[in-house]
Simulated scan of single mutants.
Amino acid sequence: MAETNRKAIALPAEVSAEILQKTQEQSAVMQLARQITLPGRGVVIPVITGDPKAKWVAETEKKPVSNPTVSKKEMQAYKLAVIETFSNEFQRDLKALYDALVARLPLALGKEFDATVFGATDVPGENFDTLKNCTAQEIGTDAYKGLVAADADIADHDGITNGIVLAPAGKAVLLSAVDGNKRPLFINSAAEGAIPMVLGVPTKQSKGAYVAGTPATVGFAGDWTQAMYGTVEGVKVAVTDQATVTAGSETINLWQQNMFAVRAEIEVGFRADLNVFNRLTKA
């Protein structure tokens, strides 16, 4: 419930739920990683770095004991927020407001979350993992060779590549990859133009997967069963027209300019076994 023009505007509970759902759809990381419910104070999670091994035994022989190698990491909730301003005309049609919220806010939240996980944006704290320093494989010169090298490195660290995330620049690299007869390697036809699978692995797209540098990172491959994110209580939404909002060097007086602002925030954390992920770079 929020005060706008001294009249109460109730944002339906399903709006927050839908914004969270849409945020998950906009975030490649949230689509691939496991989700857990995160207590506000954080939680210590086990990260399995070595699996137990079974052995054949003869009748009456002692059965082998083999425990997995487990390390522990603390997953902490950090707040990710965005404020969107609207003209008061939206108040005349609440459906238009809800539609705008569901369409615009998840894109901002999902993009920034991905950019932080992939290393384009600094992490909010020491208990938030980033993939920016993972082993790099160059795919700009020979895309197929680079992808196979990434798959092999992940396997060498006891992982299975089960998800690839491409930035738009990474998609362009794979679209231009051809065999000796100039036939595209990763798409069936130019009309499709999509890359749903690479080496039998599902592929997602995210603007956040591009990290500028020399070379630039244009994608990531990894074992996403070894990555998880947690949210405390979904997306919280608040509305006001009785505030002054600063956007860069511009100051907006909402009441004076017949506007109102919507604030969306989510408490979220991310942890992963960084050994089973590779960066895909373009020299």
Rank of each mutant, 00 (worst) to 15 (best):
S87I: 02
G40F: 15
M75I: 08
M1P: 11
S66W: 00
K204F: 12
S189M: 11
K171A: 12
A33V: 14
V232H: 02
V239G: 01
S27V: 08
L32A: 08
L166G: 12
T135M: 14
K236M: 09
R34D: 12
D158T: 15
T141F: 06
R41Q: 13
D142S: 09
A216R: 15
K72H: 10
G234H: 10
Y144V: 14
V201H: 03
K111L: 13
T203H: 11
S27E: 01
G248I: 07
N67I: 14
I252Q: 00
L166V: 12
D51G: 02
A81C: 07
A212H: 04
Q35S: 09
R279Q: 15
G146N: 05
A209D: 07
T4W: 03
K62Q: 09
A243F: 09
T231S: 03
T244G: 00
Q26S: 10
T60D: 11
G234D: 10
Y98C: 00
T244E: 02
T203S: 10
N5F: 09
V235A: 07
A243E: 14
A190S: 05
Q242L: 13
A216N: 14
K63E: 10
N162I: 05
A272R: 02
E89Q: 08
V102T: 13
Q24F: 12
G208E: 03
A96T: 10
K207Q: 08
N275D: 14
W56K: 11
G222K: 14
N181C: 13
E3F: 04
E74N: 07
F118D: 09
A167Y: 15
N133T: 13
V117P: 07
D122C: 03
V218T: 12
D122Y: 00
Q226W: 13
S27W: 13
V198F: 13
T85M: 02
D273I: 01
Q31I: 05
I19H: 04
P12N: 05
E138H: 05
I9F: 06
A172L: 15
L97Y: 04
S27M: 07
P12K: 05
T231L: 04
P52W: 00
F277D: 08
E192M: 05
N253V: 00
P106Q: 03
K111D: 11
V70P: 06
N133A: 12
E192L: 04
A10N: 09
Q31D: 07
S66F: 00
K171W: 10
S16W: 00
V47Q: 11
Q257G: 02
L38F: 04
M197T: 15
P106F: 01
L175T: 14
G125F: 01
D153W: 10
A33G: 12
A149Y: 01
E250F: 12
N5G: 06
E84P: 06
G146T: 04
A172E: 15
F260E: 00
K132L: 03
I139C: 02
F260Y: 14
I195N: 03
